[in-house]
């Protein structure tokens, strides 16, 4: 199967690979997926005192589209407020990366990872969580 140029670019030059201190109060971590299904994503956001995401990192076990979806998500997250980040839709990721139908689940997983990371941060801050997105660890 041929990947789109954008997927290949993210795969070859992934943005923001790495980890943030998951024990920090200012960091939200979302780990979603399952090894048996062939994809697990870890997405982390660091939120500054203005409530803006000033850093985002990811690590992904999965196919090229899964790596690209999470890499793109970290790019989009930076500079957004919690509310703005909450609005990122998987369909936008599909569109941006030209994902074929069999790879749509990769974008869904990325959206889940974002929401799980935001909820993890909200829990740490004692803010009510939104929806039921939750990190597995």
């Amino acid at each position: 199967m041929a990947y789109s140029e954008k997927v290949v670019d993210h795969y070859n030059n992934p943005r923001n690979v790495g980890s943030l201190d998951k024990s920090a109060d200012t960091v939200g971590t979302g780990i979603v997926g399952a090894p048996e299904c062939g994809d697990v994503m870890k997405l982390q956001v660091k939120i500054n005192s203005d409530g803006v995401i000033d850093d985002a990192k990811f690590k992904t076990f999965g196919c090229g589209s899964a790596i690209a979806s999470s890499s793109l998500a970290t790019e989009w997250l930076k500079g957004k407020t919690l509310d703005e980040a909450q609005e990122i839709k998987n369909t936008e990721i599909v569109e941006e990366l030209n994902l074929p139908p069999v790879k749509i689940h990769c974008s869904v997983l990325a959206e889940d990872a974002i929401k799980a990371a935001l909820n993890d941060y909200r829990e740490k801050q004692g803010i009510p969580t939104v929806g039921n997105a939750k990190s597995v660890v």
């Binding site: 992934p14 690979v17 980890s19 697990v40 994503m41 870890k42 690590k59 992904t60 790596i67």
Partner: peptide, 8 residues
């Protein structure tokens, strides 16, 4: 290096 599983 990019794998969350390996890190875990």
């Amino acid at each position: 290096d990019m794998s969350p599983l390996y890190e875990m």
